[in-house]
Design a binder for these strands. Sequence first.
DNA 1: CCTTAATGATAGTTATTACTTACTTACACT
DNA 2: AGTGTAAGTAAGTAATAACTATCATTAAGG
Lengths: 192, 192
Amino acid sequence: MEDTRNRILKAALESFSKHGYTGATTREIARVSEVTEVTLFRYFQSKEKLFENVVCKFLPGPEFGQFVSNAKELDYRQALESIAHFFLEGLKQNEDLIRILYMESQRHYELMEQIYSALINNLNVILADYFTELQGKNIIRRFDPSVGAKMFLGIWIAFYEEEHLFAIDPGKVKTVEAVRECIEIFVRGTQA
Amino acid sequence: MEDTRNRILKAALESFSKHGYTGATTREIARVSEVTEVTLFRYFQSKEKLFENVVCKFLPGPEFGQFVSNAKELDYRQALESIAHFFLEGLKQNEDLIRILYMESQRHYELMEQIYSALINNLNVILADYFTELQGKNIIRRFDPSVGAKMFLGIWIAFYEEEHLFAIDPGKVKTVEAVRECIEIFVRGTQA
DNA sequence: CCTTAATGATAGTTATTACTTACTTACACT
DNA sequence: AGTGTAAGTAAGTAATAACTATCATTAAGG
């Protein structure tokens, strides 16, 4: 049944994200998803195949990143702010996948590249295009759009990691205000 | 002998960084360091203790981050550039430790916090102080120095990850130029 | 020459893991 | 009533892991 399959995949996502590929056990995944180990192997022939299915299943599609296009209507500063928040939110919603990305970037290189691409690389390109467009309209000054995009997104990646990957207390500064402060620097640094 | 001990620790660092804690095996570590497994366990009573010793051994001391103080003599822009390069270089030289940091941030939380602190958090504080100082002298405008520091370092973390953790081809743009471009944005964004 | 310390060699223990085989149960549809 | 499908139960296999016990070897120092 489709329900069983999904329960296994969800439990597997959690388990892989908590313990890494080698650390996760089919026994625990079966227990959490409330099926027997035999059933698990009936759906997915091996742990490796289960892993691949997990990644593909939860990989965000091209709609992740759509918000850049949506933000284009806004004023430059507002657009950046909106993009930053959506990006941060997107990272948060894909927390399990991101943990896997970091843990398995060595051993499951090609699979992880897909995650990285879907979450970050694609956005990089879209954002760079946005910068190019604004440069054409002389709204912002000339700089390498791809570098600018990498820098802009990089800021939030680091913010995200500190808070969600390493669970470091973000201190007294609230994220919203921190984002605004960073945007201010970036806007001043890039405007014509 | 001290040499044997160090050989084991070095091999262990590599192994943990390649395969993660659970993925690494005492057998392989022994093989690479050219001792028998028995010897390994004579020096370190368990895999867990070996792991702790590896982290402590290769943890960078407070001299990592010293370069911020050294850069203070320079012009603002040059100082930032120098800091960025030293930071990136420092990350590169601690590549194995950083891999471990990402892979084990879930399971060895307290140990990993030490790595994060030594590599990033301490620097954050030092850099924030530098910004505060410059704000006092009216060289740069007022902004939350701690947020500014986090943003500044965050950029390079993301650059580093893309290139060294995920081994993504950085494309045609060379790192040196990319760094300069980002610094330009940051300087314009923060100057008085 | 004898002792001590550092290491090797060999073998074994216990636990766990991914994965399998064979048989059974429960339920839905015809 | 009978059949097929999705799942459970029980038991087991082969490999591998961390870790231990025992004894032998080597080399340096008194």
